[in-house]
Write a protein that binds this DNA or RNA. Structure first.
Lengths: 228, 228
DNA sequence: ATTACTAGGCCACGAGTAA
DNA sequence: TTTACTCGTGGCCTAGTAA
């Protein structure tokens, strides 16, 4: 018999907080009105309508009124509560969309430098395939999202110097390519101002593994810690 | 800048469940409409109004729209969630109101029978003052509440027989008289059909301790287990 | 003091539609 | 396809008021 109307939500919540779960609690429509920030008349109507839909039971003795929430009413609130809970507590992921662009080959060069490979081996357990997969992001809103990675704390590969020049740090974020291939999204110190292109590295040759040509559309998912 | 309107509640919840907490998520107003069981037009208006009140940020790129929930929007939902949580999880109490009526003295007689006192000593740790305080309940809705005690599981004093006749069981529920005096509300097998009068027993003489005469109005609180 | 009816205003919603 | 405008209808709300 009908659904809970949104405008009755606060009313039902207030009744439960008054202890009206399975026990009659005496209440006046004016105090209820004050609590839900509506008029006495609205509060009265709410109770009548909630009763009609089977969410509460009313018991009238003279001028006073007692109300209790029915199991149906309580389970309705419990449903809302758990729905809210799951949507607030669920850890989510960021999804990026883009297409493959050819790198200049310099990714392969940098990633195979001993200053990096030794740290890779130590910090992620393997030396990535020498070469990066460059992806140009399609969507403007994704550029924004990428910026967050620079301040997020993840695997941090330190920069180094070989005497001639210095090489910047690299941050690695676990990611999934097209929902299946494990890889790392990397952010480089030297390019961290540019957020329209992201680079992926992996244990394997991603280009071959996923049969990717330039221009192919791909999807990247990056799991997100709950509080970030 | 204004409060969250109730009708926007579901919309905001849906956005968060889509992962729009602090990250832009691309969405169409029609899919949003379907999810909140409103029209595309309403969904569009919701987003506009939510943005105007500072609960979400919108980012438009061409035909598509991306939305993220602002910290303000998120904390609003978190507030609702915790409010709901506390009102659903709080263990409550039943409050009865009534006035003292004089017992016939038979309470004192029964309660001092050895068959009962030995069990009292064992199960509640002391022998109650010989005599019961009888209270006539004022409110019709309280009669209903008292019935629940008979099926609730609490201290159970078994009935017995002295050879001549049998004496019924007694159930004891911890209670507080006028918010201060610890006592036990008892339900007797022989009178468990009558719910307009309840009887209290205590370690002490409640009548003297609280200076109670017949007709005095009293309040009885019985703490309630969470799931009853 | 209550509860709850009636009348009327305002606003949320959806149909139609433009861009 | 989109988003979001206008406008008409229906329903929520409050003021006034009866009981």
């Amino acid at each position: 018999m009908s659904e809970l109307k949104v405008q009755h939500f606060l009313t039902l919540a207030h009744l439960i907080s008054k202890g009206a779960k399975s026990n009659f609690v005496s209440i006046t429509t004016s105090s209820l009105g004050r609590n839900i920030k509506k008029s006495q008349q609205s509060a009265s109507k709410h109770l009548l309508e909630l009763e009609e839909s089977g969410f509460v039971e009313r018991m009238i003795s003279g001028r006073n009124i007692s109300v209790r929430v029915t199991p149906k009413g309580y389970s309705e609130m419990l449903g809302l509560y758990t729905a809210l809970k799951s949507c607030l507590e669920s850890s989510s992921k960021i999804e990026l969309k883009g297409s493959i662009v050819s790198g200049m080959g310099e990714g392969a060069y940098y990633m195979s430098l001993k200053g990096y490979t030794e740290q890779f081996k130590e910090k992620i357990g393997y030396v990535p395939f020498p070469g990066t997969l460059n992806i140009r992001l399609d969507r403007k809103e994704d550029f924004e999202a990428v910026k967050k990675f620079d301040s997020a704390k993840t695997t941090y590969i330190e920069g180094f110097s070989d005497g001639k020049r210095t090489y910047g740090w690299v941050k690695c974020h676990p990611a999934k390519l097209n929902s299946s291939l494990d890889c790392l999204l990397i952010r480089l110190e030297r390019t961290h101002h540019d957020t329209s292109i992201v680079e992926l590295i992996s244990k394997y040759d991603l280009r071959k593994a996923a049969k990717l040509d330039d221009g192919t559309n791909v999807r990247i998912e990056i799991p997100l810690k709950n509080n970030s």
